[in-house]
Design a protein around this nucleic acid. Sequence first.
DNA 1: TAGATTGTTAATCGATTAACAATC
DNA 2: TAGATTGTTAATCGATTAACAATC
Lengths: 205, 205
Amino acid sequence: MTPTIPDIVIGRLPVYLRALTRLSQEGVDVTSSHELGQRLGISSAQIRKDLSHFGGFGKQGTGYQISYLIDQLRQVLKVNREWDVVLVGAGDLGSALLHYRGFAERGFKITHVFDAAPEKIGKQIVQFSVQPMDELQETVQQHNIKMAMIAVPAEAAQRVTDLLIASGVKAILNYAPINLNVPDGVNVQYIDPVLHMQRMTYYIP
Amino acid sequence: MTPTIPDIVIGRLPVYLRALTRLSQEGVDVTSSHELGQRLGISSAQIRKDLSHFGGFGKQGTGYQISYLIDQLRQVLKVNREWDVVLVGAGDLGSALLHYRGFAERGFKITHVFDAAPEKIGKQIVQFSVQPMDELQETVQQHNIKMAMIAVPAEAAQRVTDLLIASGVKAILNYAPINLNVPDGVNVQYIDPVLHMQRMTYYIP
DNA sequence: TAGATTGTTAATCGATTAACAATC
DNA sequence: TAGATTGTTAATCGATTAACAATC
């Protein structure tokens, strides 16, 4: 069995990947842990240590070939393929997520949208037709979808979560401002911009 | 001088505050580190330790009075007041942020919107009129604004950051998918939902 | 009083950094 | 070859947890 890699390391890989993609776009072919660390504001030792969990991607004296490292990181993170995602909640926020092109551009394709409100069912948003909640389980199972985004009010979020998990979803991006309880084997990530704002005000004199 | 409190502790306070606010809405008056920890999936010891950095907010044998603890945390985080915020970038994302009511509801009031594109200047979004970038510095200084959100393309983000900092901004919520270089005394928080998605796919079998 | 829970100290755990041999 | 940078080990640093006296 592969020794378990710390989650905090996994969390930094997408940051590396993003910076490397950017360097690549700028026409840079090779970089070093030092250069990358400088860009990201972290130590070169940390970058080397993080990468070394997955194998030797660099060359002594030279550094890392960016295109190769990108390929390897995409493979490790399993983002070298397209992932289907369902969205629950078709309000203002859900609608904004449907309009956001960044997901599809980077391999996350929203395929279905659900909402509980009868008046929203059948509504067209971008190319999506909002489906009722009772179709969720069958749809998710039929298409073997493993990822979901939640954009419903806090009161509904745990119920929606339980339904998603019962349907086989393993990864949830939660925009509702509430902590979710999930069993082992299911991953939740939280987005609440207000939390970030509240963290910063502490430091403003 | 107050001993410095670890940033990771500051980062958890808004999470506590959010959970406490929710408990309060549910009609609960008193809670314990154990109950709160259970809700949030963290240890009771961590909660007690975090809170103890700021004083004794609880009572042995009883726990914490929620309304009092909320007041105290709001004071510590300086969110017991309203903060003005400028938004840079009036594209799809910026527009979605203007429509999002969660900021104002929790004390962060977007007061001005800027964009570099001539065709966007003067455009009305919700109650805002998009202003040109050359008005940014004067506006920020005049109103003594300390917080900003960035919703521009990655290529423009560092330039915008430099301008914001030159204007006196101390806290930046960055939606552009790029790392920003800022001097000491300026705080940046990042929101890139794709990074969260990429972190979760690693764990999907 | 008996039971419960805090605030805090000490012990443990884990993550980061420093250093350097290996080697391109 | 000389210079540079990796991958890795050991040392350091910091955060979390366990435990318990204090006390409501």
